[in-house]
Design a protein around this nucleic acid. Structure first.
Lengths: 328, 328
DNA sequence: GAAGAAATTTAAAACGTTTCCGGCAAGAAG
DNA sequence: CTTCTTGCCGGAAACGTTTTAAATTTCTTC
């Protein structure tokens, strides 16, 4: 900046103002300074800006260990970086480890001003992270909704619509006893999925059951064993709503262990977040959730908050994509 | 720091020195200052440190769009954060987009001192990123080796050993015409895999072929179509070495399209990087590459470089894990 | 053509560290 | 008792920005 000041014969102050397009600097001065800056390849020193202003230009993505599976985090990350491209914001990955509560990194980031905004997922109805962030007026976007009365920015997939449609498809295939592999109950979207499922079940008056022993967080091996064991008992379910691809595979495997095959003894409708299930035989029916898009939307919402927009419409509910996603 | 200076009755300078354990400060002074710092919950202001010293305390992970698939990046990231835990270093994800050359972000990071060190993958024999980084004396660790005469830090999986063992297994199953789905030729590990494959082929004197039309970067759909088409021609291969899980699934699917089943008309030995293939039927034989471990090792190597260690033994070659990985 | 208003620019301080260099004690040597 | 060395500590400048408050120029208006 000093260099530019020398080159243009202006004071450093003026250069600073001109570069941030302050209105009180004459228009041609601004243009001139910006041109010179471009010519000498000027780039602001982030450290100095941060020291002076307190803004870090950093957005922190809280990564849950569970999200390691199948690139859940990667897809979000990909969308996020897309949204952050061209902005001065950097994305830093802040994993929380299994041995510490999910709120610790949030606390740490707030207290030490390590970021300007936070993005996280696996939201709970009364998520302590949300409470803490709101109390501190700290900008954030959650993946998933809460039950707090105060509104906050979120992006969520309409898991209720997903489960409803998935269940209806099973029923329309003639399945008479449906079940659903849910996320852990404490997560908000478990309730949403359950709601969609139950709505469809009640409408059709079909039998159903809700497994207690396994969730989407269970290992594939556990789900497989559970499905296997359940299939041996009387009156097993013949229609499965699977909230993830891994659980769908495990469900198939558990049945195969007993010689039962997909499409004959049972059917599955699964949530698809990658292109994984497209190539296994027999074909699993899926409904698509676009995580990269969710990441991008979260990034955009956060940026809007950071640029001072006071949030009225900072909530996004992604509709399930019922068609098969176009090939890559 | 000013607070601590007040509390201890020392000067800011002394506090600074005491906190960084400078030897010219009396030992009990150091201990006292550090105790007080702990009590008041002092945390250094990264921005100020960075401004003053020029060190960013940031490590940049260059993410390739191809790595989105199946959490390749996520696993590395997970291991990396493990290695960085307890250090003052932050991990920032720097994706390079499809429309820009892979060297651009490197250039950008070096020129603008955006990080203290860089980690990346998909290394080529004469990788321009490696050349640039070495020219600038910029610390980095690559995932994969190069052919430069000057040594540099890397972590690599022994893909030659993998392909050799995989091919031998196919042959021992009685397969008489083997093939291998390789990464794009320009990547170093394509050569390594080819070498291992060819060694096994020559030893056994078995027939082989190398597909030109598809690589591990090809979409699953393309691989599936290729395999399908090839199976219809005369003298198709009956043993497949697959460098990734998706390609293995696609290979199975391509055969299934013609009614050919795994274990009967053909066999596969695949590289496994997730727990994905464990639950599909029929079971695919795999050899495991531990990407999280690779990430952790890369992190450690980089930290060692950053703490001034001059690299003699900064190269790590991961041996393939032949047994089935223990269940999660 | 001078006073006041408006428009434009600038000097200087500050953000929280690190570091160069100098200073002050206390003990050792003469 | 003076001088020198050694061991600790402190003053002040600097890193590259932003911002407050003030100074300078230019424009109106009578």
């Amino acid at each position: 900046m000093r260099t530019i000041a020398g080159l243009t014969g202006l004071a450093v102050t003026t250069v600073s103002r001109a570069l941030s397009n302050h209105a009180q600097i004459a228009l041609d001065t601004r243009e001139n300074v910006q041109r010179v800056a471009r010519e000498v390849g000027y780039l602001p020193d982030r450290a100095a800006q941060r020291l002076k202003t307190g803004r870090t230009h950093v957005i922190s993505l809280l990564l849950d260990p569970h999200e390691e599976i199948l690139g859940f985090g990667t897809s979000l990350l990909h969308g996020l970086t897309l949204a952050l491209r061209g902005t001065p914001y950097h994305l830093i990955a802040t994993p929380n480890f299994q041995d510490e509560p999910a709120i610790d990194p949030v606390n740490f980031i707030i207290r030490n001003k390590l970021a300007d905004g936070i993005i996280f997922s696996r939201t709970e109805p009364f998520d302590p992270r949300v409470r803490l962030l709101m109390e501190n007026g700290f900008p954030f976007v959650s993946h998933g909704r809460t039950d707090f009365s105060t509104q906050h920015a979120y992006v969520d997939f309409d898991n209720s619509a997903f489960a409803y449609e998935a269940t209806r498809r099973l029923i329309s295939k003639g399945r008479s006893r449906v079940t659903i592999i849910l996320p852990p109950k404490r997560l908000t979207f478990a309730q949403h999925m359950l709601h969609g499922f139950m709505t469809a079940v009640r409408e059709a008056g079909v039998e159903y059951e809700i497994p207690e022993a396994v969730t989407l967080d269970s290992s594939a091996g556990m789900i497989r064993d559970y499905v296997n064991a359940r299939a041996a008992e009387p009156n097993p379910p013949d229609g499965f709503v699977c909230g993830g691809e891994v659980s769908a595979l495990a469900t198939i495997a558990g049945h195969n262990d007993r010689g039962m095959v997909l499409g004959r003894e049972f059917d599955i409708v699964a949530k698809q977040t990658s292109r994984l299930l497209s190539h296994i035989q027999p074909r699993v029916e899926t409904i698509y959730e676009d995580l990269a898009a969710a990441g991008e939307q979260m990034g955009q919402l956060l940026i809007r908050q950071l640029s001072g927009e006071t949030g009225t419409d900072l909530q996004i509910l992604q509709a399930p994509r019922f068609g098969v996603p176009t090939s890559k």
